[in-house]
Amino acid sequence: MQKSYRRRRQWVGLLFVAPALLLYGAVILVPAGKTINLSLWQWDGVNTATWRGLANYVDVFTDAILRGSIIHALFLILFFSFLPVLMGLVLAGLLTRRRWRGMAVWRLLFFLPQVMPLVAVGIMWRWMYAPQGIINQVLGWFGITRADGWLGEASTALPALGVVGAWVQTGLCMMLFIAGAGNIDRSLYEAARLDGAGPVREFLTVTLPGLRREIGLALTVTVISALASFDLVFVTTGGGPFYATTVPGLLVYQNLIAGDIGHAAALAVVLSTIVVIAAVLANRVGKTE
């Protein structure tokens, strides 16, 4: 009697999750499965497909342009993820220490880049980085004359895109950390102060450990955005100059519009795998125990 009740309860439980499971299956699992399937074929999207097995994956790992793109994406993590988390911590530390006048304005200003569409951000920075753009003009006031555009030189293009990413993500990190700092028990600060801690000591011993979960979250979100970056590169450099800024997301797109769905899918699968691994690692930081 009790046994059958328990079994029924199991089925009822499944019934409860069924709508969510079906939806998740339809929009996530089915497309994922289809992508994996497509990665094993050579197909232009219309005509008869030819079986390729794992050959598309072999190409993915042996192609120099592709390996370069993965290295570029990893490099972008420095700018999209590590730098914003650092800056976000500093800003949050400054802004939460005491009540500043016009706090809302500061928050808004730093968060604004996060609200703007990345395509608009990209076009704006492209103009700023142009040979006669505002950045070179400002440098000119200090006697530094630069005739080259920042996105036009192989040595500066990728870091220049990285700076844009840092500019966008810092606001997000700051907001997360300010919100997180609000949850830290005030008495911890008082205790630290009674023990004679200065602002830096206070930040390191109370704020930083208290923000562990938020830091983990910020790292996860920003690492994913670095690895999956596409729109910013697409509207600024298109992967150039001379492959200096190609990222995997861009190559997926380029293969797709060139009618090479198999390679695009194989690349997408590899990229997704890297993203999942990176996200799991980043998430570890946030685990409190």
Partner: peptide
């Protein structure tokens, strides 16, 4: 569940 769904889809030609 995920593996079954994915496997079911990887077998057929697009």
């Amino acid at each position: 569940v995920s593996a079954t769904l994915v496997a079911a889809l990887t077998a057929c030609a697009p």
